[in-house]
């Protein structure tokens, strides 16, 4: 008996117990916090790929270099598309805070469409490059280029599928603490990808052609 009753429940206020026990809101906060940590790990993955790219940039193996390949016009367009999509995902979160489910779903839909456009442009760029004979195995520079830019693109693609899944869930469940957290997380992810892209744009494209 003595061994068992160690829990000094008498000292815990019911309110505290409540928030610990039925911790739904608490739990959603915790999930967001975990996602921030995940983003840190993703930063390190990108950091590694950026470092690789910078080391290998000059190793063109007699093949084309950045200045020969990149057409900055198209890249600027896709950069704007991604920036705007970041903005629309922000509008989605604002609509959510106002409790406007229709607007929330609409803005998420717009964000997803812009994301899809971005991916389409990237695929198009890659096809064009391969057509010019610049493939992953042409040189170390191109290996690093495709891997860095492709990894970002893959992230956008994952975000896209995820966003569509969340839109459907919003349609089913409405704005609940759970869906709210999911919208927060995807929007965080989307802004993150935007920031990564700014680095890609600067380090790979701008510094490549200049």
């Amino acid at each position: 008996m003595a061994q068992r009753n160690v829990n000094h429940a008498g000292q815990v206020s019911p309110a505290e117990l409540h928030s610990e026990d039925h911790g739904h809101p608490d739990m959603e906060e915790m999930r967001k916090f975990g996602f921030w940590i995940y983003l840190m790990t993703d930063i390190i993955i990108f950091g590694t790929l950026f470092a690789t790219y910078i080391v290998l940039k000059g190793n063109t193996n007699g093949g084309p270099g950045p200045a020969d390949l990149f057409q900055i016009g198209g890249i600027i367009v896709s950069t704007f598309i991604l920036l705007i999509s970041s903005y629309t995902s922000g509008l989605a979160v604002l609509a959510m805070h106002k409790g406007n489910r229709q607007a929330l779903m609409r803005w998420l839909g717009v964000t997803a469409l812009l994301g899809a456009a971005f991916i389409a442009m990237e695929v198009n760029e890659f096809i064009h490059l391969v057509g010019e004979g610049a493939t992953l195995s042409t040189s170390a520079f191109l290996s690093a280029f495709y891997t860095l830019v492709g990894t970002h693109g893959l992230h956008v693609l994952v975000g896209l599928v995820w966003m569509i899944a969340i839109i459907i869930q919003l349609g089913k469940h409405g704005i609940t603490p759970v869906t709210k957290r999911k919208v927060h997380i995807i929007s965080l992810f989307w802004h993150f990808l935007d920031v990564v892209w700014i680095f890609v744009f600067t380090i790979v494209y701008l510094m490549g052609v200049s």
């Binding site: 190793n59 007699g62 084309p64 270099g65 040189s139």
Partner: peptide
């Protein structure tokens, strides 16, 4: 295979 300073 490293860069020789010649562009493509």
């Amino acid at each position: 295979s490293h860069n020789h300073g010649l562009s493509w």
